[in-house]
Design a protein around this nucleic acid. Structure first.
Lengths: 153, 153
DNA sequence: TGCAAGTCGTTGACACTTCAACGATCCGAT
DNA sequence: ATCGGATCGTTGAAGTGTCAACGACTTGCA
């Protein structure tokens, strides 16, 4: 039965600032994409992952890992995106259980149309406010946390 | 028609690291609270805000601002928490439209029971991995971003 | 004082996500 | 070769969040 090591005032402030900032940022980016491009942040990111994959296609499972969502979440997202015409399902040759989600030309076009506004918003709300030194520091610290978080999963 | 200032490789890496880390962190903390204390991260935070307020009560609207949720979101959360016995609604004296959400003794007890594990998890996944210098830097940079985000509503 | 405009909390409708369970399929040890 | 245990993607059920609209109430201005 160890003592609890509470957060001191500095840590608490940092924690709240981090939490609030992140939420505001994600809300803001989501709203920007929604109103300017008519796509949700989640769907946008899924398309980004596909666009960066070889042949613009990924296994459902890998898509789940990449987006940090569940398999069922990806199933439904892909259904949604398929209905919009931005993604198509392609059966897997080497694994008959498997499915690929493949970015269509329309999906790529959608992405190219949405990206500039999104990147501008990310810049405006984040990178334009940070020195390159701060970006490095943030990156380092996040990478360290991510490694730890992934280990304990 | 301005040129798009894309993110360079360093910025992209930092951006992904930040996004993934944040999601993993929130998922992990949520899971910890859910399994060890039987409460969601959202509900936990709402209770924390109440516990820090004078008389352990807040107007619904203020609660919405504090938690960065919508008024309707708070309405439903409070209904949920009221059903669990952790919060009670109290009518407002000076504004007959108004409602207070007030932390009950049971709610305070719940909070005191859940807090140690939560704080330990926050330490383990975050503050134990950061030097105090890094905490300061993160705080500074988040505060700057938050201010900017709040300005743009 | 009276009234238009705004704010408060709630609700219905809907969107998105997760969990648990499922049938189908793959794989490794025997 | 087979068989038990894993993995794959999907589905139903349930939970949680948002938006738009509402009635109730307050506020500011003429």
């Amino acid at each position: 039965m160890d003592e609890v090591r509470w957060l001191d005032a500095t840590e608490q402030e940092a924690w709240r600032a981090y939490l609030d900032t992140t939420r505001l940022l994600i809300q803001t980016l989501g709203r920007q994409l929604e109103t300017d491009a008519g796509i949700s942040f989640t769907d946008y990111e899924l398309l980004v992952h596909l666009s960066e994959a070889p042949e613009r296609r990924m296994r459902m499972r890998d898509l789940a890992d990449a987006t940090l969502a569940t398999r069922s979440g990806v199933t439904r997202a892909v259904t949604r995106l398929e209905r919009a015409g931005w993604v198509r399902r392609v059966e897997c040759e080497d694994d008959r259980r498997g499915m690929h989600a493949e970015l269509t030309d329309a999906g790529m076009a959608k992405l190219e149309k949405a990206a500039p506004g999104h990147v501008a918003a990310v810049r405006e709300q984040m990178f334009d406010l940070l020195s390159s030194r701060e970006v490095e520091q943030l990156h380092a610290l996040c990478a360290r946390m991510r490694k730890h978080l992934e280990a304990g999963r």
